[in-house]
């Protein structure tokens, strides 16, 4: 079986004197390494320069609001079931009168927590969500944490801020499969 066409047949013939002397090969090796001294460096200076990771990158979670700023999540728990790392937990509550502008459905998540140490960023929660409520942002990573009590992200850090809304780039590479016809990913 051949995987690549770069395979080389190595011969085990006796070496010639030049090869035994080692020096020609040694100097050609030195030439190769010194040529790399002047090549462009591939390093990206990470915190200052960030590389665009592509439209399908799965980064920081976000709990979406709809166009009127109401939370979409209805605390059905499907994301928690889908989660292979069991990182998601939630407590459901019933929407009271006068809270219609806060929550879209009659039931909402009073507590919604993701343990970022457990999360493996597989994106299954995003796929499982019937309300298009949870997304993994493609443009932002979960920041490094220094303390253990910073690890569990509650609603205050997950729910989308109105002045910092997440719009996923609608390009041909991403095949959106809308479950609600009126609320395609592009529409948000």
């Amino acid at each position: 079986m051949q995987l690549t066409n770069r395979a080389k047949q190595v011969s085990n013939k006796e070496m010639t004197l030049a090869e035994k002397m080692y020096l020609p090969a040694f100097f050609s090796g030195l030439g190769i390494t010194i040529s790399h001294l002047f090549k462009k460096k591939v390093t990206i200076q990470y915190p200052e320069v960030k590389k665009y990771l592509g439209p399908v990158y799965r980064g920081h979670h976000v709990l979406k609001r709809d166009e009127q700023g109401r939370e979409r999540c209805t605390a059905c728990g499907l994301c928690a079931v889908a989660c292979p790392a069991e990182a998601i937990s939630m407590v459901a509550a019933e929407r009271k009168k006068g809270e219609e502008n806060l929550y879209r459905e009659e039931k909402y998540a009073a507590v919604y927590e993701i343990n970022m140490l457990r999360c493996i960023f597989c994106g299954l929660c995003e796929e499982a969500c019937p309300k298009q409520a949870v997304y993994l942002r493609h443009d932002r990573m979960v920041p490094v944490f220094m303390e253990r009590d910073e690890v569990v992200y509650g609603k205050e850090r997950l729910v989308e801020k109105m002045d910092d809304r997440y719009v996923r780039a609608n390009n041909s590479e991403v095949k959106a499969t809308p479950t609600e016809p009126s609320l395609t990913r592009a529409a948000t």
Binding site: N5, R6, K8, S11, K13, L17, A18
Partner: peptide, 23 residues
Amino acid sequence: VMIVLAITTTVKAPKREMLTQQS
């Protein structure tokens, strides 16, 4: 002497088979 010897033996020696394997 060493350089001359090295060059002559290299020229005389049969080329090593480092052919790309073609299937």
